[in-house]
Computed example of a mutant assay.
Amino acid sequence: MTRTSLAPLSTLVVIGLLLGSAQALALEGDASAPIEVEANQLDLDDREGTAVYTGNVDIRQGSMQLTGDRVEIRRNDQGQLSQATATGERAYIEQLPAPDEPMVRGWGRTVIYHVAERRIELIDRAELHQGGDTFDGGYLEYFLDRRVVQARSDAEGVQERQRVRMTLEPAKQGGQ
């Protein structure tokens, strides 16, 4: 397992803001922007606290986007968002953290955001990119508050191991 601390990736709070988490940080206008959802189908179960969007799902709010073949949103007993799961051949999340920073992008066959833990999982063919910095593996886990990435070559339920790879761009020196 590889463990790396990354300050620039602390802005990977796409789904938190996307789904109304007031504690998340991002572009100032993102939290107040309207949420736009496109899908082929919606199955909503108020009693169970779930909403399942299927068929080319595209959710956007400001600079943020979450896509997948299927997106399931779960709420807890108090009606608060507890988990969002996007699945598909290449489920995707992105966010522009600040006007002068590069877009943060993440992919996997499964993307899971655990709201209470403020944790994002990218599973199976997982990738996380910001500028020239990239992480690839079978499983990537990103802890928003601690700014920690954990990467593994395999994930539960995944047939083949996918070696962990990391590329970090050197920090630019002042004036260069």
Rank of each mutant, 00 (worst) to 15 (best):
P8K: 05
M64K: 13
R118Q: 13
G16I: 10
G49S: 02
R90T: 10
Q159P: 11
F135V: 07
E36D: 08
A116R: 08
E117P: 03
G49I: 05
T85L: 09
A31V: 12
L128V: 02
G16D: 15
Q173L: 11
V104M: 04
E127G: 03
P97M: 05
L168R: 14
H114A: 06
A22C: 04
G29V: 13
D30R: 14
L144Y: 10
E141K: 14
S153I: 10
G16E: 11
Q176V: 04
P170E: 08
L19Q: 15
V111Q: 00
G132H: 05
G88Q: 01
E38C: 08
R70A: 05
Q83R: 10
V148R: 12
S63A: 02
L27T: 11
R60V: 03
Q159A: 11
Q61L: 06
V104P: 01
T134K: 14
G79P: 00
E156L: 15
R152N: 14
E101H: 11
G132C: 10
G106R: 00
Y139M: 08
A31T: 12
Q159C: 06
G132Q: 08
R146H: 10
I123N: 04
T11N: 14
P34D: 01
R105E: 07
R125W: 04
A126C: 02
V158T: 12
Q78L: 12
S32M: 11
L144V: 15
H129Q: 05
L27H: 09
R75I: 00
G131P: 04
A171P: 04
V13W: 11
T4R: 09
M1F: 12
N56G: 09
V164I: 09
T134L: 06
P8V: 04
L168N: 07
Q80S: 05
T2N: 09
V14C: 11
A116Q: 08
T11E: 15
S153H: 14
R75F: 00
Q41M: 03
L168T: 11
V158K: 15
V148D: 15
E48Y: 08
R105M: 06
T4A: 08
R60L: 00
R105N: 00
F135S: 05
E121Y: 05
G174R: 15
A33G: 03
L66I: 02
E141N: 13
T4C: 08
L12K: 10
E72P: 04
Y53S: 03
T50I: 13
A33E: 07
V71N: 01
G55R: 00
